[in-house]
C-alpha cells in the first residue's frame, strides 16, 4: 500500500465528484428518499424510531451504490487516461483503493447528512441510541460492499451504463439471497443465506456487533477490490 498514490487518486476522484453535478444529484436524491421514509414513520405512525429507514435503505443501496461508482474506471478507460494512470509506477490495487475510498467518502457524507433524523427523534422521544448506532455501522459496511461491487463492474467495461447494470445485478443478487430460505431446504439455505449481504446487515442492525458479520463485509470488499484491480489491467495481482 502506497498512501501517496492512494491519496493522489483519492483527491482526484473527490474533486471530480464535486466538480460535476454527480455528487450533488446523488446526495439530493439520497436525502429526499430517506427523508420521505423518515417523515412517513414519524408523522403517520407517530413512532420515534428509524426502522423504516433501516428496512428500506439496504435495498435502495443496491441502486444508489452502483450510481456512485459506475464512472470510476469505465470513464477513464473510455477517455484513455486509464492507460496513462496505470503506466505510471503505481500498483493496480492502490489505484483501485484510492478510487474506492473516494466513493466511500461520498457515501459516508450522504449518511452523515441523514443524522438529522436520528437527532430529531433522540431529542423528541425516547429513541434507542445503541440500535441506531448499530444500524448506521451496518449501513456503512453494506454500502461499502456494494461500492466495491460497483467498482468491479466499472473495471470491466468502458460503458458507464453497462457498469451500472452489471453492478446492480450482482448487488441485487447478494441482497436477495437472504430469501433463499423460503424455497430451498434448510442446510443449503443456511449456506446461501450466509452469503447474503442483507443477512449480515440485519444481524448488525439488530444491535449485535458480531465479528463474523464485520469480517464478512471486509472480506467481500477485499475480494471485489482485488478482482477489480485484476480486471482494470491484464497484469498480475497487486
Amino acid at each position: 500500500m502506497n498512501w501517496s498514490v492512494i491519496g493522489a487518486v483519492w483527491r482526484r476522484e473527490m474533486r471530480s465528484y464535486f466538480a460535476n453535478p454527480t455528487a450533488y444529484i446523488v446526495l439530493a436524491v439520497f436525502l429526499l428518499i430517506t427523508g420521505w421514509f423518515f417523515t412517513l414513520n414519524l408523522f403517520k405512525e407517530n413512532l420515534a424510531h428509524l426502522r423504516s429507514i433501516f428496512d428500506i435503505l439496504p435495498f435502495l443501496l443496491v441502486v444508489f451504490a452502483p450510481a456512485i461508482s459506475m464512472r470510476l474506471i469505465s470513464e477513464e478507460r473510455k477517455s484513455g487516461t486509464l492507460e496513462l494512470l496505470v503506466t505510471m509506477p503505481v500498483r493496480d490495487f492502490d489505484v483501485i483503493f484510492g478510487k474506492f475510498l473516494a466513493a466511500f467518502v461520498l457515501y459516508a457524507v450522504a449518511l452523515v447528512l441523514t443524522f438529522v433524523y436520528p437527532f430529531t427523534i433522540i431529542v423528541l422521544g425516547d429513541a434507542p441510541v445503541g440500535s441506531i448506532a448499530a444500524g448506521y455501522i451496518g449501513l456503512l459496511l453494506l454500502g461499502a460492499g456494494y461500492l466495491g461491487v460497483g467498482l468491479l463492474g466499472s473495471a470491466l467495461t468502458e460503458s458507464q451504463i453497462v457498469a451500472f447494470i452489471l453492478s446492480f445485478a450482482v448487488s441485487a443478487a447478494l441482497a436477495v439471497l437472504v430469501f433463499a430460505a423460503i424455497v430451498i431446504p434448510p442446510p443449503l439455505a443456511d449456506i446461501i443465506q450466509y452469503l447474503s449481504t442483507t443477512y449480515h446487515f440485519q444481524n448488525i442492525a439488530r444491535g449485535v456487533l458480531d465479528s463474523r458479520d464485520v469480517i464478512y463485509f471486509l472480506s467481500l470488499i477485499f475480494l471485489v477490490l482485488l478482482l477489480a484491480s485484476r480486471a482494470m489491467t491484464q497484469r498480475k495481482f497487486l
Binding site: G7, R11, T81, L85
Partner: peptide, 26 residues
C-alpha cells in the same frame, strides 16, 4: 509516456493536472 490522442483530465487546470501527475509519480 505520451499515449495516442493525448488523454488528459479535462476538468483540471494545467497546473492541477501536472501536480496530480507529480503526486501519482511520487
Amino acid at each position: 509516456y505520451l499515449p495516442e490522442n493525448t488523454p488528459l483530465y479535462h476538468d483540471l487546470t494545467v497546473y492541477e493536472y501536472l501536480k496530480h501527475i507529480a503526486d501519482v509519480r511520487q
